[in-house]
């Protein structure tokens, strides 16, 4: 569906059910250069279990009007505007990678709106090396190759996706090609410039879940450990065999963890 936020059109999928703000809400936040399709194996599950589901494309990504937002802090504010625009209630945030930084900012500044936060494959910061930053602006295909190459673990590179016939890597490449150079380059700069992770993490309250990818090369162990150390009593699970793209590489495990956590902390009737 499309809706207006600050005079700009925002696109979001709703998991195959109309968005009903009388129900508890689950919002899924995608990572750099990606879009709503990243969450296809999760959004529909919650929508058909009596949750209002929202999977927005960040501004300037795929179907949402641009330009892309230039800072993580601005993305956090934009998320609050989205929630206000839809009058969404009892929000469980589920975020991946860059989306986790947005979730940190939002959760630290708008705690009253949240019932729970799930961080998947994230650190407190996401420093981006100069080669990738440069490629994102000047050689998008190379940037996409780096991100998908590092992002996916063995299951992705061996095209062992969970949906019969589908290639996760190829699907990701097609989505990212639609979001280069502007959205991807802007996202990566925003990640690289984000320095408020520690402060934000220490402000997050309520139920917190952290899902760690054991073979994550985008948010390696040290970064994830720092995140966990600065969060208040998070529920931490490590999925040993997954690369960074947890929701796509091991969707069944990821969904089971999200289900248990969200059903417990933000139950739908």
């Amino acid at each position: 569906m499309y809706f207006d936020v600050g005079g700009k059109q925002v696109f979001a999928t709703t998991g195959g059910k109309p968005f009903d703000n009388s129900k508890p809400t689950v919002i899924f936040l995608h990572g750099s250069g990606l879009d709503h399709t990243f969450w296809g194996l999760h959004s529909r599950f919650f929508a058909f279990r009596n949750y209002a589901v929202l999977v927005p494309d960040l501004p300037g990504h795929t179907n949402s009007e641009g330009p892309a937002l230039t800072s993580i802090e601005a993305m956090g504010d934009w998320l609050n505007d989205v929630i206000e625009a839809l009058d969404a209630n009892d929000v469980s945030l589920v975020a991946h990678s860059q989306g986790c930084l947005v979730a940190l900012e939002f959760a630290s500044r708008y705690p009253d709106r949240l019932r729970s936060v799930s961080f998947i494959a994230s650190g407190l910061a996401t420093p981006v090396n100069d080669v990738l930053l440069n490629a994102a602006e000047n050689d998008p295909e190379a940037a996409i190759a780096m991100m998908l190459g590092w992002g996916f673990g063995s299951a992705g590179h061996l095209h062992q996706g969970p949906i019969p016939g589908n290639s996760m890597v190829a699907g990701g490449r097609k989505v990212m090609r639609g979001n280069v150079p502007d959205a991807l380059a802007t996202d990566l700069k925003a990640c690289n410039n984000y320095k408020n992770g520690v402060g934000a993490a220490e402000m997050v309250s309520g139920p917190i879940q952290v899902i760690v990818a054991g073979k994550d090369r985008m948010a390696p162990g040290k970064a994830t450990t720092e995140l966990i150390e600065h969060l208040s009593d998070p529920d931490v699970t490590v999925i040993a065999r997954s690369g960074h793209m947890v929701p796509q590489e091991v969707p069944d495990q990821c969904r089971a963890l999200l289900k248990a956590f969200i059903f417990s902390n933000n139950p739908a009737t």
Binding site: G165, S167, A170
Partner: peptide
């Protein structure tokens, strides 16, 4: 769908560079 057929499908998608 079938698991054996699925392997072939994903192999062909990979060789072609297709999404599915």
């Amino acid at each position: 769908t079938n698991p054996t057929v699925g392997v072939l499908e994903q192999r062909i998608a990979a060789l072609e560079g297709g999404s599915a």
